[in-house]
Write a protein that binds this DNA or RNA. Sequence first.
DNA 1: CAAAGAAGTGAATCACAATTCACTTTATAA
DNA 2: TTATAAAGTGAATTGTGATTCACTTCTTTG
Lengths: 210, 210
Amino acid sequence: MAYRATARTEAHRVSTRQNILSAARGLVLAGGFTEVSMAAVAVRAGVATGTIYRHFSSKEALCAELFCAASKAEVDRVRRSVEGPGNASQRLADTARLFARRAIRGRHLAYALIAEPLDPALEQQRLDFRRAYATVFRSLLEEGVANKEFAPLDPHIAATALVGLLAESLVGPLAPSSHALSGSGQQHLIEEISNFCLRAVACNRMEKNE
Amino acid sequence: MAYRATARTEAHRVSTRQNILSAARGLVLAGGFTEVSMAAVAVRAGVATGTIYRHFSSKEALCAELFCAASKAEVDRVRRSVEGPGNASQRLADTARLFARRAIRGRHLAYALIAEPLDPALEQQRLDFRRAYATVFRSLLEEGVANKEFAPLDPHIAATALVGLLAESLVGPLAPSSHALSGSGQQHLIEEISNFCLRAVACNRMEKNE
DNA sequence: CAAAGAAGTGAATCACAATTCACTTTATAA
DNA sequence: TTATAAAGTGAATTGTGATTCACTTCTTTG
C-alpha cells in the first residue's frame, strides 16, 4: 500500500471543484446558460476539459448543481421577505419590490433562472424553482385571505399569477433592459409592479359605492 | 425552349409546400417545436428531407413561417375580443376568459407559442408575438384609465404584467395540465384568472372606507 | 527512492441533426 | 419523340460541442 487521500489533497480537490463551479457561474452571470460550454468553463477555470469530468459526471450535472444553488439562494431571500414584519399587504408589496430590485440588478441571472431557453434536463430544476416561489407567495395569500385583508381568491392560482406577472414584466422579452432605465425609471417600474400586485389581491369594496 | 411552369405545376408546388407546412404544424401541435426535426417533418409529409429545402431555405425559415402564422391567428382572435362590445372592464374579463379557454384547449400550441424554450432564432418572433398581445391589452387599459374605469396605472407595464400572468397561470410550468382539470375545475380556473385581472386594474376605492 | 493511486491533460472520438448535391423522376412544349 | 427545366431523392457531408481515454504529472507512504 502506498497512497491514501489526505486532508490536504481533499482540500485541493474541493477547491478545484469550486473553481470550476464558479467559472461556470461567471459565464451564466455574463451571458446565461447559452454561454456555458465545457470548453469555455475549462478555459475560465484554467483547467482542461477532461478535468471537469473528474468533478462532474456531465455538463448537465454541472449546470443542474449551479442552477439549484442559485435558485435556492433567490427563493430564500424572497421567503425571508415574505416572513418579515408587517401585515400581509405590506409584506406582499415589500416582496414584490425586492423581487423587482433583484431582477433589475442581476438581469442575466434572473433571466437565466426564470426565462432563458434551457435544455429539457434543466427544466425540471426550473419547475421546482418556480414552484418554490409560488409556494412562498401562496402562504402569504392564504394568510391574507384568512384575515380578510385580501379578496377571497384561490391562493394557488393567484400565487402562480403573481409569479408570472413578476417574471414577465421584469425579465420577460418585453421587459426593459436594465441599462435602458434611468434610476427614476427603475423606481417607477418597481412601484407600478408593486401596486399592480396589491390591487390584484385587494378586497374590492367598490360595491359599497354603487 | 421546352419547359415553362404552368398552372397545374404551380398548384402542385403550392400543395407540396402546404403539405410540408402542415406536417410541421402537426408536430408542433403534438409536442412543440422540440419535435420538429427536418427528418420528422419529411417523414410526416411523405417527402425526402431534400425536398423540404426546395420549399424552405432552412429549418429556421420553416419554423418562423409556422410560428408567424399561428401567432397572428391567436392575436387576431384576442384583438377582436378586445374590440368587442361593452365597457373596458367587461371586455377585459371577456378577453381574459377567451385567452384562458383557448390556452386550455390548445395547450401544446399555446405552450409552443408562449413559453416553450426555442432556439434564439425564433425568439424574435416570440418577442413580436408577445409585444402584439401587450399592445392589444395596452389600448384597452388606456381607454379604461382615461375614463376612470381603471386605476391610474402605467398602461405599458400593466399590459405586460397581464400577458405574463395569463401566460404563467395557463401554460407555464405550474399550470395544471388540461386533462388534469374537470370541466368545473377549468371553469374555476378561468373565473379566478379573470377576476384576478379585473382586480389588478380596478380602481381601489378602499380609502373611502378608512 | 520506488510503487501505487489520484488528478490533470487535450487531442481524438462520438452523437446528432441540419444541410448539400449528384442523380433520378416528372412535366412541358417544340 | 426529345430537349429542357423544375421537383424530388436520400446518402454523404458538415458543424458543433459533449465526452472519452491513453498518457503525464502529482502525492503519499513503505
